[in-house]
Amino acid sequence: MKSLSFLDHPLAAFPPPDQALTEPNGLLAVGGDLRPERLLSAYYNGIFPWFNSDDPILWWSPDPRAIFLPKQIKISSSLRKYLKKQPWRYTVNHAFSDVMAGCALPRQKQAGTWISQDIQTAYQKLHQQGYAHSVEVWHGKQLIGGLYGIALGQVFCGESMFHRHTNASKAAMAVLQQHLLTMGFALIDAQVMNPHLESLGAQAIKRTDFLQLLHLYRDQDVQANAWLPSEVSLELP
């Protein structure tokens, strides 16, 4: 019988993902902390935190799981034409904190955000340690969109994206696709399916299938310079 686990001391380990509840879908554990070691252990095992600022820390491993295969991200012909007309610049790991802050702003019809200051501080530590990364979209000197996530081997665990100009977050996704393919990544974890992700080519797969892919790619090597801060060009056919 599945039951919720409570991480009630610093060394408490995560239970196996298949012990997650079916309702709410994927809730696995409560409590613990946001130390880099625990966060990395979570992602390494297909688990991620997601909770409101007034909730305890909640850990999830939903079934099904949303993923992208980098080669299968959809960039529509209309979006390609639109992006080719824009004078935007694109960078990797130039403004991680600013991207997180952009992602933390409440969206339309949302009263708050799950990307609390504690979450921002925790992931900034992961960024400093070389695990968390960002893609930025600029119009002149203005940051108009971006995304961030965690890289483990050949797996990129996407966390959030934002835009201040139309299609800027989709542009960030196109840059991410190009970057991951160049650097030898094989899998993007998108966590939970939604219409926006589906429109970009995400697919929902069984948790067991996701974990098999995660175990296959999480320890594989990528290019040593994969995440050096850089300005990149978006190559669109």
Results as ranks from 00 to 15, higher is better:
residue 220 Q to E: 11
residue 73 I to D: 09
residue 176 L to P: 01
residue 93 N to I: 01
residue 41 S to L: 09
residue 111 A to E: 14
residue 192 V to C: 02
residue 40 L to I: 13
residue 18 D to F: 06
residue 153 G to V: 11
residue 181 L to R: 13
residue 181 L to P: 06
residue 101 A to P: 00
residue 153 G to H: 10
residue 221 D to K: 13
residue 166 T to V: 13
residue 160 S to N: 12
residue 9 H to P: 03
residue 42 A to F: 06
residue 23 E to G: 04
residue 184 G to V: 12
residue 33 D to S: 12
residue 75 I to R: 10
residue 208 T to L: 08
residue 133 H to Y: 05
residue 79 L to D: 06
residue 97 S to I: 03
residue 58 L to V: 12
residue 15 P to C: 09
residue 84 K to Y: 00
residue 134 S to F: 02
residue 119 I to H: 07
residue 5 S to L: 10
residue 237 P to C: 06
residue 229 P to T: 08
residue 159 E to D: 09
residue 4 L to Q: 11
residue 137 V to I: 15
residue 101 A to Y: 01
residue 103 C to K: 03
residue 111 A to D: 14
residue 223 Q to E: 12
residue 11 L to P: 00
residue 169 S to W: 04
residue 162 F to H: 10
residue 65 R to Q: 11
residue 206 K to S: 15
residue 226 A to C: 09
residue 54 D to G: 05
residue 26 G to N: 11
residue 211 L to V: 06
residue 202 A to E: 06
residue 203 Q to D: 03
residue 94 H to Y: 03
residue 145 G to N: 06
residue 214 L to N: 05
residue 49 P to I: 04
residue 193 M to E: 12
residue 188 I to G: 03
residue 99 V to M: 03
residue 144 I to F: 06
residue 130 G to P: 08
residue 126 L to I: 05
residue 54 D to T: 14
residue 222 V to R: 14
residue 202 A to Y: 04
residue 112 G to Y: 06
residue 75 I to T: 13
residue 115 I to W: 10
residue 216 L to E: 14
residue 98 D to I: 00
residue 147 L to T: 02
residue 91 T to Y: 00
residue 190 A to G: 12
residue 23 E to T: 15
residue 131 Y to E: 04
residue 20 A to S: 15
residue 222 V to Q: 03
residue 101 A to F: 01
residue 227 W to S: 01
residue 65 R to M: 12
residue 212 Q to F: 03
residue 105 L to P: 00
residue 63 D to M: 09
residue 120 Q to G: 06
residue 1 M to A: 14
